[in-house]
């Protein structure tokens, strides 16, 4: 069980997050939506230990995860807003390097890389240099990197941004398949696409979770309409 409890964060005097709390169960793909500047990326950075909250806790299996960051990061996969990769490396080399850096044993690196590549559909470009790939393929490589060691929590920041429809569908499907073994928290503005693959939507507004919209069992259009309404309501 992954729990975010009363998280608050401010840059100097500007309060970005006031009191954010939610729970994500294993197998869930939770999507956080909100306007630009609502604090989605900041929240994910806090969850990825890239920023310190003013107050609040991140609990994992009942323990304060931020108190033992190294242990927490072993179970974490993070994909930032823009794919930041080593452009000079081939995809395979990059993934192997990252797996080794994350502490995977030599024997299992190949298997892990193979699995992640298969799941993210980058097996066909394993020998290609990253600089020659399209943005969509780079995002897939970044996603493969984030899920290399089968993390228990996967944080994906605005990961459908800049992708075409078919690529968004493929990435969404991948995200859904990852949710089989991890708690996925994703942010983005592509509500229609995200609605197909997410189990729940959290609307972030005014530094709080303004509303929670379940998506499981509902068709994407209905969910998208509810989320849009919730966003409008929060704005009003």
């Amino acid at each position: 069980m992954y729990e975010v409890r009363n998280i608050a964060f401010s840059y100097s005097r500007r309060k970005v997050l006031r009191d954010v709390s939610f729970v994500v169960s294993p197998g869930e793909a939770v999507c956080i939506v909100g306007e630009n500047g609502a604090g989605k990326t900041t929240l994910l950075k806090i969850l990825a230990t890239l920023a310190q909250p003013d107050s609040g806790l991140v609990m994992m299996d009942g323990q304060d995860a931020l108190a033992r960051p190294l242990k927490y990061r072993r179970q974490l996969g993070y994909m930032g807003e823009a794919p930041a990769l080593y452009e000079d490396m081939a995809v395979k080399d990059y993934l192997e390097y990252r797996a080794a850096l994350k502490g995977e044993t030599k024997k299992r690196i190949r298997r892990r890389v193979g699995e992640a590549a298969e799941m993210c559909a980058v097996s066909g470009v394993m020998k290609s240099p990253i600089r020659t790939l399209s943005l969509g393929m780079k995002k897939r490589v970044a996603l493969a990197d984030a899920m290399l060691l089968r993390p228990r929590v996967l944080l994906l920041d605005d990961f459908l941004a800049g992708l075409d429809v078919s690529m968004r569908n493929e990435m969404g499907a991948t995200m859904a398949s990852v949710a089989a073994f991890a708690s996925v928290i994703v942010t983005g503005h592509e509500i229609g696409d995200l609605a197909k693959w997410s189990t729940r939507f959290l609307v972030l507004s005014g530094g709080l979770i303004a509303s929670t919209i379940p998506a499981a069992g509902l068709d994407a259009a209905t969910v998208a309409a509810r989320v849009e309404n919730a966003l409008k309501g929060a704005k009003a």
Partner: peptide, 13 residues
């Protein structure tokens, strides 16, 4: 390039 974020989110000091 922003790669520092992906370096700092793995379990390495």
């Amino acid at each position: 390039s922003g790669r520092i974020e992906s370096l700092l989110t793995i379990a390495v000091r």
